[in-house]
Amino acid sequence: MFRPITRSIVTGALRAQRLASTLAFVEAQGSQITSASLSSLNAAKQLGNPVVAILAGSNVKAAAAELNKVSGLEKVLVAEHAKLDHSLPEYLSPLFTKLIKEGDYSHFVTPATAVGKNVLPRVGALLDVQPVSDIIKVEDAQTFKRPIYAGNAIVTVKSTDPKILVSARSSAFEPVELTASESYAVEEVAVSVEDSPVEWVSENLVKSERPELSSAKKVVAGGRGLKNKENFDQLIFPLADSIGAGVGATRAAVDAGFVDNSLQVGQTGKVVAPDLYIAVGVSGAIQHLAGMKDSKTIVAINKDEEAAIFNVADVGLVGDLFEVVPELTEKIKA
């Protein structure tokens, strides 16, 4: 006579186990999964539940196949629709919201990239959930660490929301490896698009042969001390090339037009944590340090020995960058 009850308990437990998954938004460029997404997949895996990856756009099947190189996913969802190209939040958010509501996901994870930051809060509003932005550590499935005040304080927060939304800072999580050979089920998600009075017009991307700043193992960054764009081009780029580094810049250097905005490192630009960060002519303002102080080794070259950058540098050289940098570039090449 107890059997029906027992059975219902068992099915209940199984249901709970099977349904609690983490939905992870994966960004791709062609068939390539972005490095930031590989990092956020790692964060997603640390939450403990099975991870379901979702790709969105008109041609994402190739990238879905690439996810077979990631171990330990549950399955891959593809939402194929031309309206989802360019990742406009007006179209992505209703899709994610619907999936999260109907799919019994416990968590939703995005990379803390321009796209992730654009979309996640909108999803939060639609679900009535306060997202946890830019996490740097998963303490447990509800508890996270994130930096506040330009990284001058680390706050530990516990989410009390029934569904938990997080964006993961890519420099804080190792990318998952692309070494497995799985064959995940690829499920197509039905996309119903409600028109929004917004359209994507154009883009102007900076083309570079150098490693992408956010995922580069080495970064050479220049600041105001370079004085002009010509110096930046003549000193920073060759030094970066001599060690295969990405190039970054301070706000001052960007504002003065030495390089494009997208190379700005700091609180409001990119946050990087490479193995080696060489700061040239960079004073070390709070806002810049926020974007690079988790680098493994920091080298500073500055003529002002009082510059704040020396407080975080592992190796500092007080000297004129116009003499030091060419010499350094030559000696590294030698």
């Binding site: 959930v129 306060q130 946890v132 508890t143 930096p147 506040i148 990284g151 001058n152 304080a153 680390i154 706050v155 530990t156 927060v157 516990k158 989410s159 009390t160 929301d161 102080k293 920091i298 020995e305 020396f310 407080n311 975080v312 540098a313 592992d314 190796v315 500092g316 050289l317 007080v318």
Partner: peptide, 18 residues
């Protein structure tokens, strides 16, 4: 929705050399 459990200093970097 987010309960603040703790606010702490970020890890301090060890002094470097010149």
């Amino acid at each position: 929705r987010l309960e603040v459990l703790k606010v702490e200093e970020p890890p301090v970097r060890e002094a470097g050399i010149k």
